[in-house]
Nucleic acid binder design. Structure first.
Lengths: 110, 110
DNA sequence: CGGTTATATCGTACTTCTACGAAATTCGAA
DNA sequence: TTCGAATTTCGTAGAAGTACGATATAACCG
């Protein structure tokens, strides 16, 4: 069970073209800083706040922007915990991204 | 064996940070048109040229630009075949993308 | 050779991204 | 209530992405 962050899974819109959905996740992952953030959150599956800023050679406000992009893609989410904000990766969404990618190649015979 | 396109696999630079490499592939896939192009090329594993343009509601020059982005990411490549150009998806690169993504989550216990 | 076809490249306009510092917000502590 | 800390949001500047039409290129066909 997760800590106090990682609340309700965000709604997965069923009306979206899978290619568009895949593109949205891919776009969110399309910057090295965001990949690093996601990795960081996955490695401690516990949630983390501005500790992420300390890990990256970027201004804190820039990291906050990257977090927002990831949040809006659904790949991570955060919950307020006092003064801090507790972020974590959304495993379901990441699995979905993997599934969409696998779906692309499912036509190819091995 | 592949048709007359799909030549030598492009060099995979070993000195690249995996997070940067993943971000590069993800960025290339970060537009719906490019996902559709890749799907198109995967579904007919045979190579295709400007037939792709006909599949998308975009100007031919725009599709050509998207093809260039995919080409530069290594996810597809093309080879001249007379007047036309024969494109195809690079299965190795796509597998590599899947592997990099899996690597991200390999810390998470199921 | 000149024309046609398939494709890339150029020039351009507009939008979006990336990054920063400064300011606003929100909560907990003194 | 005032202070300080953790974050987001705002404003802004420059870089990159997206799309189009027009133009260039290169190969085949007559």
């Amino acid at each position: 069970m997760s800590p106090k962050c990682c609340p309700a899974p965000p709604p997965i819109d069923p009306n979206v073209d899978p290619d568009e959905e895949l593109a949205r996740y891919a776009k969110a992952l399309g910057h090295p800083a965001r990949v690093k953030i996601l990795r960081f959150l996955l490695e401690r599956e516990d949630c983390m706040a501005g500790a992420i800023s300390g890990e990256l050679p970027l201004a804190q406000s820039t990291v906050s922007q990257h977090l927002k992009v990831l949040r809006e893609s659904g790949l991570i989410h955060g919950e307020v915990d006092g003064t801090r904000i507790c972020y974590c990766a959304d495993a379901d969404r990441i699995e979905r991204l993997q599934g969409l990618l696998d779906g692309l190649t499912s036509f190819v015979q091995a």
